[in-house]
Amino acid sequence: MGKLSPRHAVVDSNMCVACGTCADVCPTGAMEIVSGVFAKPIEEKCVGCGMCAKECPASAIRVEVRS
């Protein structure tokens, strides 16, 4: 497994409307919609660029420093 980026996207599944905007704009294909319920980043692919957070209409995504 490659090295994880220092920042990553975090999804508030209660706020997420599973519209797929994040998956649509993600430049690394790191967002998947889990069973039409909420979006979930694929940690190995997420580079924490924040494109998903910028476009999310429900403001359900934020970018955090990995713990």
Binding site: V17, A18, C19, T21, V34, S35, G36, V37, E55, P57, A58
Partner: peptide, 22 residues
């Protein structure tokens, strides 16, 4: 741009169905 998706009735309905099946 896709703010409609937040309160789209079809989106809300299908997410409710998906939640029930999840």
């Amino acid at each position: 741009p896709r703010s409609w998706c937040v309160f789209c009735p079809m989106g809300t309905l299908t997410q409710t169905i998906c939640k029930a099946k999840y």
